[in-house]
């Protein structure tokens, strides 16, 4: 067996060098063929050397709540458009969630496909936030049940939504803490991360954040932006209502795809 291992190691070394040489010469075709051979040799090596089969250990925890449902829970708590990172953190901190950001990347596309094949066939959809061009905003998820005003994004909305989420999380943290012996570490860390980005939300970094104080600070700043944001969003929502069909209203209008050869000046 060790002879075979030696041979394989030699072969792997040769192939690795050959791949890197090909990459350096930008010979991607050759590199691809070599890489395939390399993977093959590496798998053979793994099989020989490992007593247990290689590969990331998959915890076979039964997933009772689907990814979709977990995202819905988190968004429902946040009650504002949010990025996958925040959704995952909220799900973990308050619902014992198991989702990872990577699982959220194709979610919006899947939802759109489902909606197209049977409109309004589900009680809710995870859908897009709409930019001032009514196109889908990158990296934001919303719930179809929300009023359009909440799902459109004006210039102040990213900040307003952040503050709204902070208030929701602080409230949830306070509720959770009231019912538990010790505050959940993940919730505390999440809240601390938000608190230091809100003026008056925290004293330095050391003390654990006080949910009441975070919520109060967020409300104070929110009051500064609320009026203009509400106006901007109402305007955008009106435009969306009058210009967009059902699919586009939920998942955003396609961006102009015409290729303009001439530089616009």
């Amino acid at each position: 067996m060790s002879d075979r291992l030696d041979d394989l190691e030699r072969r792997i070394d040769e192939l690795r060098s050959a791949v890197r040489r090909a990459m350096r010469a930008r010979d991607t075709g050759t590199a691809r063929v070599l890489r395939a051979e390399l993977r093959h040799a590496e798998r053979a090596w793994d099989a020989l050397v490992s007593t247990v089969p290689a590969g990331p250990p998959e915890p076979p925890a039964p997933r009772l709540v689907t990814v979709r449902e977990q995202v819905h829970q988190a968004l429902h708590l946040l009650s504002a458009p949010a990025q996958p990172r925040l959704i995952v953190a909220v799900s973990g901190a308050f619902f014992g969630g198991t989702i990872r950001s990577a699982q959220l990347t194709s979610l919006r596309r899947d939802e759109a496909r489902s909606f197209r094949s049977s409109p309004y066939g589900r009680p809710y959809y995870l859908c897009a936030a709409l930019t001032d061009r009514l196109s889908p905003a990158r990296g934001l998820l919303t719930l179809s049940a929300w009023p359009l005003e909440r799902r459109v994004i004006g210039p102040l909305s990213p900040r307003v939504d952040f503050l709204t989420c902070a208030i929701a999380i602080a409230t949830a943290a306070a509720t959770a803490a009231a019912g538990a012996a010790a505050p959940d570490e993940r919730a505390t860390r999440l809240l601390a991360g938000l608190a230091r980005n809100i003026p008056g939300g925290a004293d330095g970094d050391v003390a654990p954040p006080d949910p009441e104080r975070v919520a109060a600070a967020a409300r104070a700043e929110l009051a500064v932006h609320a009026e203009r944001d509400t106006r901007d969003r109402a305007e955008l929502a009106q435009r969306a209502t009058s210009q967009l069909g059902d699919v586009a209203r939920l998942f955003g209008a396609a961006t102009l795809s015409t290729i303009v050869k001439e530089e616009a000046r």
Binding site: T131, D132, R133, S135, A137, R138, P155, L156, P158, R159, P199, E221, V224, H225, T255, L256, S257, I259, V260, E263, A264, R265
Partner: peptide, 19 residues
């Protein structure tokens, strides 16, 4: 504090970004 307005220029698509 009031200055928070955010514009993502990339929302308009590559060919119009400069304009």
């Amino acid at each position: 504090i009031a200055e928070v307005a955010y514009h993502d220029v990339e929302n308009v698509g590559a060919h119009l970004r400069h304009a």
